[in-house]
């Protein structure tokens, strides 16, 4: 076992991790952030994506001990304390960009990672931004619309 410290959604944690544990397992099984989904476990589907030090990464490909000292954002960190949805979450609802919901947490985080760096992305940039996230329901069109709407909401100072 190894002790590491990290921040998740702004809150500091000091935890013991097994040597062979992945960040995905740490977040889900030890810390209870079950919005992080395990899909393919090899970096292809993107369902386990989280934001680590500002960058979108697949948590199935990061060893837990590597996250020592990192700041992680999961879907649980997006809504306000009073339960108000984050503008990106609201945009996904408003555009009907959610069907079964399995890809949604990571898809929203992919949108956040993109919009944090580029507040006015083109359709092409949006498609690239979510290119590491598979969705088997929506056909992506509504997700692209939702990310555009999210950009509008955020540029207006949040909805």
């Amino acid at each position: 076992m190894k002790t590491i410290s990290l921040k998740v959604n702004g809150k500091p944690y000091t935890v013991e991790v097994e040597e062979d544990m992945r960040l995905l397992d740490l977040l889900r099984d030890k810390l209870g952030f079950t919005g992080v989904k395990e899909g393919c476990a090899e970096g292809e589907c993107g369902a386990c994506s989280v934001i680590m030090d500002g960058n979108l990464v697949t948590s199935c490909l990061v060893m837990a001990f590597q996250a020592d000292g990192k700041e992680i954002i999961t879907i649980e960190g997006l809504q306000s304390e009073d339960g108000t949805l984050h503008p990106i979450q609201q945009a996904f609802l408003d555009e009907g960009a959610v069907q079964c919901g399995f890809c949604t947490p990571a898809m929203v985080l992919a949108a956040k990672a993109l919009l944090d760096k580029n507040p006015n992305p083109t359709d092409e940039q949006i498609k690239e931004g979510i290119s590491g996230n598979l969705c088997r329901c929506t056909g992506y069109a509504k997700i692209v619309s939702a990310v555009k709407k999210a950009a509008e909401y955020l540029n207006q100072g949040g909805k």
Binding site: G43, G46, S49, M52, L61, G132
Partner: peptide, 9 residues
């Protein structure tokens, strides 16, 4: 290479 996630790692 890969995807944004893979390129960030």
């Amino acid at each position: 290479v890969g995807s944004p996630q893979i390129r960030n790692l």
